[in-house]
Amino acid sequence: MESCAPEKTRVRNPEEPPSRLPGDLVVWFFVGLELATFGLLFLAFAFTKLMQPVVFAVGQASLDQTVGAINTLLLISASACAAHTLANVRAGRHRAATHWLGAALLLGLGFLFFKSREYMDKWQAGVDFASNDFYMLWTILTGFHFMHVVAGCVIFALLLHPVSRGRYNAQDCNALESGCVFWHMVDLLWIVLFPLVYLLV
């Protein structure tokens, strides 16, 4: 015999924001487009590697995996800081949010510093875009990603002032959410790029 008792429904806190995708819908379309673009580049890298295994093995052996691992840690840490920024803004702790966002920006700049050093070392060793197919694809993939990190750092820098002024709150933080979504995409792309280009032989 079935029970006639009414089902319990979850009562939403009036102060709790409604369930939705964070950030602007345009940002999500952009994220989808960028993921598709990088997906094609990843496939091109994997296919060319199958065609030229020796060239790619020699090229990968010349890359600094330690620096790549450091950059991975920097990006993941920056994503964590961005998430803490958003959580503190929603909780009304704007001073703490400012500190977390500043930390995310510094970590992103750290990535750019180490990546620039890697490019400089390769250039000084006589390696450039036209050296072979491995370095061409390495330059395209990491260079395109580098530009996204630059864009992410610019976004964080632009958000820093309004966050410090308490411009955003739990009901109005769309711009901050969009910036965090973009950065998480940048982080995700590197998490795929690093093992594919630096580790898998």
Rank of each mutant, 00 (worst) to 15 (best):
E16F: 09
E16Y: 11
E16P: 02
P18Q: 12
S19M: 13
R20V: 00
R20M: 01
L21W: 07
P22C: 00
P22D: 00
V26P: 00
V27D: 02
V27Y: 01
W28T: 03
V31M: 03
V31P: 01
V31R: 01
G32K: 02
L33T: 07
L33Y: 03
L33S: 12
E34N: 04
E34A: 02
E34Y: 01
E34C: 06
L35F: 07
L35C: 10
F38I: 07
F38A: 08
G39W: 07
G39C: 10
G39R: 07
L40E: 00
L40R: 05
L40A: 13
F42D: 13
F42S: 11
L43D: 11
L43Y: 13
A44K: 06
F47T: 06
F47R: 13
F47K: 06
F47I: 15
F47M: 09
T48D: 06
M51A: 11
Q52N: 11
Q52G: 05
P53T: 04
V54Y: 04
F56R: 08
A57M: 09
A57D: 13
V58C: 10
V58A: 15
V58P: 03
G59Y: 04
Q60A: 10
Q60S: 08
A61Q: 13
S62A: 11
L63A: 04
D64G: 02
Q65K: 12
T66C: 00
V67K: 15
V67W: 14
V67S: 14
G68Q: 10
G68N: 10
A69C: 09
A69I: 09
A69K: 09
N71W: 03
L74E: 00
L75H: 02
L75W: 08
S77R: 01
S77N: 02
A78G: 07
A78Q: 06
S79I: 07
S79M: 11
S79P: 03
S79L: 09
A80G: 07
A82N: 11
A82C: 15
H84N: 14
H84W: 15
H84C: 15
L86M: 02
L86V: 03
L86F: 03
A87Q: 06
N88Q: 14
V89R: 12
V89F: 12
R90E: 05
R90Y: 02
G92A: 09
H94R: 08
H94I: 11
H94S: 12
A96N: 02
A96M: 01
H99M: 14
W100G: 06
W100P: 04
G102D: 11
G102A: 11
A103Y: 12
A103F: 14
A103M: 15
A103G: 15
A104E: 07
L105F: 15
L105N: 14
L105K: 10
L106S: 15
L106I: 08
L106F: 09
G108Y: 12
F111G: 10
F111R: 03
L112C: 15
